[in-house]
């Protein structure tokens, strides 16, 4: 009699995670297509609208995300070495950096809202159509990205708890790897969002 063994396939679940990441990439891909087309049709308006965004804040956030991406990768090395403390610290740094990113984002958005720039606002509609499209895309894309950060932080927090409970350990860490993959995805998307909105002006 064969007992119903718990089916475990780490490689399989990693492939599954990658496939999920593909769908996420294409989800943003749809928005990138829209961005590309409207930028092509309204080059001047996009240029001018891009100047309204603060490059310093954007750069800071880029660096924050890059570091957080590196630390989450390091936490995986740490778990492979069997160093629980290091794993936890790297993960904690990642989460703190993500929160820092969100705080930055909050001030950036509320600044825009304070100036009466939000989707459907009168000030926005008074600007040209190109500007309306630019800010529409800006809010949609960075908003969707921020949503992914929130989901990512939640997942990383769950990982933190699971490492503390030794559910994730030297021999079983595919969940941490997958969470890491998700976090890098968030990073990659930002790597493109940053120049497209803040730099090309």
């Amino acid at each position: 009699m064969s007992t119903v063994a718990v089916h475990r396939d780490d490689v399989g679940s990693k492939i599954g995670m990658w496939l999920f990441i593909f769908t996420e990439l294409l989800l943003f891909g749809g928005l990138f297509i829209v961005y590309a087309v409207y930028r092509y049709k309204n080059p001047v308006a996009f240029h001018l609208a891009g100047e309204e965004l603060d490059v310093t804040v954007g750069t800071l956030n880029t660096v924050i995300l890059l570091i957080s991406s590196a630390t989450v990768a390091m936490s995986i090395s740490a778990v492979q070495y069997g160093n629980k403390r290091a794993t936890l610290s790297y993960l904690l740094i990642t989460i703190l950096l993500a929160l820092f990113f969100m705080i930055n984002k909050y001030f950036e958005w509320s600044g825009k809202f304070g100036h009466g720039m939000y989707p459907g606002s009168e000030k926005l509609t008074e600007l040209g159509q190109g500007e309306v499209l630019f800010f529409g895309l800006y809010f949609a894309m960075t908003g969707l990205h921020a949503l992914h950060i929130i989901i990512g932080v939640t997942i990383l927090l769950i990982m933190l708890v699971r490492i503390m409970n030794n559910k994730i350990n030297k021999t079983y860490f595919v969940q941490l790897e997958n969470s890491g993959l998700y976090w890098h995805l968030v990073d990659i998307i930002w790597i493109f969002l940053f120049p497209l909105f803040y730099l090309i002006s």
Binding site: V34, K41, Q129, G136
Partner: peptide, 17 residues
């Protein structure tokens, strides 16, 4: 988003295509 938040994506009155 376009229906609820009036973000212009496809509606020509908001510059969309």
């Amino acid at each position: 988003a376009e229906r609820t938040l009036h973000i212009g994506f496809f509606d020509p009155t908001l510059g969309g295509d």
